[in-house]
């Protein structure tokens, strides 16, 4: 299935691919590499002086990598996601997906927001089908919709209306709506932030298995240190606004991880102290 000659990510040297964690037989070549190069961004304010939110951010995501962005809330992580999604252009700097700069949204990079944002006038199935419909391939590829519903375990709720779903189910439907497009990069903006803690734990492992089965690159914004540690291969820590990258931490642990793993406990302490919260540990 994975054929190196078809890979769009030719800028990744083979030795890096071979260095992937052992549970991957091979990193999926078709997943996207993202290069954020010296990106700064600011929002206009009524007073006239723009409010800086991102300051000279440089970040590389390798194909198939799971990267978590961690930082205090309101620091500008979500803005970075919007820029990578192509919803807004950065004020300065460039963002490159594989070999081309990102200038507009594209179904190869799908965002899942904190709110499921399901369209209330569409059934769950029609919500999941939205991407294919927008790209004009729904008639040919409608089987993919059922496949995506099956992946997230909502096959029996295809005809339900969004308001009939629980919070976790709604977020699963939003995931299915993303997965149906076979994204090369999944952008997750605190997708589990509003779920209760039990549903959250369950959804974290589902997210993990979806990533491992599908192989897309994942960029996860979270302010939950434990969530980042459980899921990500690499954690990028941001400063308060305007967001700069403070440091990066690799989590060299195989999956599935355990919450009480001593390595994770040490890393959590490390991260909290880098965020200036070491004394609260």
């Amino acid at each position: 299935m994975v054929n190196p000659t078809e890979s769009p990510a030719l800028n990744i040297p083979p030795e890096e691919i071979n260095a992937a964690p052992p549970e991957f037989h091979a990193r999926p070549y078709w997943a996207s590499a993202i290069h954020v190069q010296h990106v700064s961004h600011a929002f206009p304010t009524p007073e006239g002086t723009p409010l800086p939110v991102l300051e000279d951010v440089c970040l590389d995501i390798r194909p198939g990598e799971f990267v978590a962005l961690l930082g205090p809330s309101g620091c500008g992580k979500s803005t970075l996601l919007r820029l990578i999604a192509g919803l807004e252009p950065p004020l300065s700097g460039t963002i490159i997906q594989d070999d081309a700069p990102i200038v507009r949204p594209d179904p190869s990079r799908i965002v899942v927001f904190q709110d499921p944002t399901l369209f209330p006038w569409r059934t769950v199935r029609d919500n999941v089908a939205l991407g294919l419909e927008a790209q004009g391939v729904l008639k040919k590829e409608s089987a993919r919709v059922d496949e995506a519903l099956l992946k997230v375990g909502l096959e029996n709720f295809a005809k339900a209306w969004p308001h009939q779903l629980s919070g976790g189910m709604a977020q699963r439907a939003a995931l299915a709506r993303a997965l149906v497009n076979n994204p090369k990069l999944l952008i997750l903006d605190e997708p589990l932030g509003k779920l209760d803690s039990l549903t959250r734990i369950e959804m974290q492992s589902e997210l993990l298995s979806l990533w491992r089965k599908n192989g897309f690159s994942v960029l996860l914004v979270t302010h939950d240190v434990e969530e980042a540690l459980m899921l990500a291969e690499r954690i990028v820590i941001f400063s308060p606004r305007p967001a700069r990258i403070l440091s990066e931490i690799s989590v060299d642990l195989s999956y599935p991880r355990h919450r009480d793993d001593t390595v994770l406990t040490a890393l959590r302490h490390e991260i909290l102290s880098r965020l200036g919260l070491g004394k609260n540990w």
């Binding site: 919007r82 179904p107 927001f113 939205l130 709506r177």
Partner: peptide, 14 residues
């Protein structure tokens, strides 16, 4: 709500 447009745009909507 702006989010609806954002979601649809990332899904490839014209």
């Amino acid at each position: 709500h702006k989010h609806y447009y954002d979601v649809a745009r990332t899904l490839g909507a014209s």
